[in-house]
Design a protein around this nucleic acid. Structure first.
Length: 122
DNA sequence: CGATTGACCGAAG
DNA sequence: CCTTCGGCCAATC
């Protein structure tokens, strides 16, 4: 079972499954892992994500769709460029149409079917 | 070992 | 919309 894997490893695994042109939030990942309240740990996992490979951390933003961790990519421009390169519109450190590009692991991975879930963001 | 910090979230005022 | 607060847990000081 996944019990062998650390919390961080689970986070990395989910992040790797984020399809191009999509983004998710720390809370969504935390919720998917069953630790909704530990969204901060997801952030910490991303901080250590540099130790892992193929972890598109740029597809993970906070619940507002803001590029909160852009400074951790080696430059404040890197994250935005990576997202725009995937077709995601970013303006002023915020993802445009966040509700449309939002990818919720607890929904997409649970059913393993067609993506695109129009989730309402407050 | 105690206190602080952190790529967060949600509720309350 | 804003700020403040509590919670959660690991890494760092």
């Amino acid at each position: 079972m996944e019990s062998d894997k650390s919390f961080f490893e689970k986070v990395y695994e989910v992040v790797r499954k984020i399809p191009p042109g999509r983004v998710t939030s720390y809370g969504a990942i935390a919720h998917y892992l069953g630790t909704r309240s530990s969204a901060r740990m997801v952030g910490w996992a991303m901080n250590q994500s540099h130790t892992q490979a193929d972890v598109p951390a740029h597809r993970v933003v906070n619940r507002k769709g803001m590029l909160s961790g852009k400074h951790h990519f080696g430059g404040p421009r890197v994250m935005q460029q990576l997202l725009e390169s995937e077709g995601i519109r970013v303006t002023d450190d915020q993802v445009i149409d966040f509700n449309k590009v939002f990818w919720d692991p607890s929904l997409e991975l649970a059913n393993e079917r067609i993506p695109i879930s129009v989730k309402e963001i407050k």
